[in-house]
Design a protein around this nucleic acid. Structure first.
Lengths: 208, 208
DNA sequence: TGTACATCAGTGAACGCGCGTTCACTGATGTAC
DNA sequence: TGTACATCAGTGAACGCGCGTTCACTGATGTAC
């Protein structure tokens, strides 16, 4: 175990801010969003305990930056999956659902910083903006789906996107953590896809 | 602000174990599942920092006890709401959903200890048992609903209960925390009820 | 191209603090007779 | 009913520890001329 970060050059780190973000991601995945100290993050970036203060106001600020980067990446991946509704609204909608799950799985550290760290989104303007951008994709996907449906035969698109978001988040929290399959005999993907399928049938958007 | 617990009698507390559990509940609600120390819990129970060691092995053990009590209460409330399927399966199913949400709302401290504290359920036999008992109610409610449906026209009852659980948990985490209505223009109850309604329609269990 | 200088981004020592945990102790309570 | 004694459930002092944070410092880098 080499505690010293390998890309460290000399007296100056050169890229400490980002190195701290990455150290934090690992620590979050290992020990949870509150299971480590700022000093620990500094140590695992190969730097003294005082160094982080050159880049962040404190622990809270570091985690907020991690969450911010996470939301940016998340928004990109959601937008790419949505692909402005191509090839068709239903396929795009389903792609967004899958993108949600793969983000949560492949970037657990970001996901935890964003949704489980208790970082205050309301109290941070920039974080608020980028979080909204990410979540807006889900609403757009629902709107596309409703394009040819009369408004009085369906719930508001925002409500639909909250339903899907809630189910996605619930699946991640309850079934995508820990050893695979430990808590349920179904995979997270399977659970979310089947759940969303039944839901869409309930909206009259899938046959039978 | 009286830091000393009021029901404290003399040299012996008399009910310290439970007082610590209750102090922990308040602290969890205030500061999150990792936002306080064992010493803090002791202090707010009006007792020296060494006293908790007479009842718990440490912080982890105290939180596990809080979670255990939470699961017991949760199971009771879910079972009462289910009422063995009375007055009819659909009403019972919906009552279970509402019970989930009110438990999360009225007993946030327990809910957080159970689902967000990172307490290891798998590694604690008693906790495992009581958690399973609570979750089994949801599966029973789904089974009752399916009573008169041929098995090949429906998903497994466990899967349905996981879907509902995921959506319930998602609604709690995303929309039932913080100031009411801050994150969504819909109340948690409204969101869960409408979401579950659409889902049940998708199962062919509700008309239209 | 060389040099002087300003600025940046680190160090490491120091401090005060509160926590976890142990320990010998002691006040209160329960019980045998 | 009294008394002796064991046990229970607290105290408070002590310890070592690591954290957060500040500070004067210094090595490295960038830039003006």
């Amino acid at each position: 175990m080499n505690k010293q970060s390998p890309e460290r050059k000399g007296y100056h780190h050169g890229n400490l801010k980002q190195a701290l973000v990455e150290a934090t991601l690992s620590l979050i995945e290992e020990k949870g969003p509150t299971g480590f100290t700022l000093a620990e993050a500094a140590r695992s970036a190969g730097v003294s305990a005082a160094a982080p203060y050159r880049h962040f106001k404190g622990r809270e600020d570091l985690i907020a930056e991690v969450a911010r980067q996470g939301y940016v990446l998340f928004a990109e991946q959601m937008e790419a999956a949505f692909d402005r509704g191509n090839p068709n609204p239903m396929a795009a909608f389903e792609a967004v659902g899958r993108a949600y799950l793969s983000f949560a799985r492949d970037h657990a550290g970001y996901y935890i910083a964003m949704f489980e760290s208790g970082v205050s989104i309301a109290g941070n303007y920039e974080l608020n903006m980028v979080a909204n951008r990410a979540m807006a994709v889900q609403t757009q996907a629902a709107e596309k789906l409703f394009e040819h449906m009369p408004a009085n035969q369906r719930p508001p698109a925002t409500m639909v996107s909250y339903h899907i978001w809630a189910m996605s988040h619930g699946v991640v929290e309850l079934f995508a953590r820990g050893e695979p399959g430990r808590r349920a005999p179904f995979s997270p993907e399977e659970l979310l896809e089947s759940g969303v399928g039944i839901y869409l049938r309930g909206l009259g958007l899938l046959p039978k």
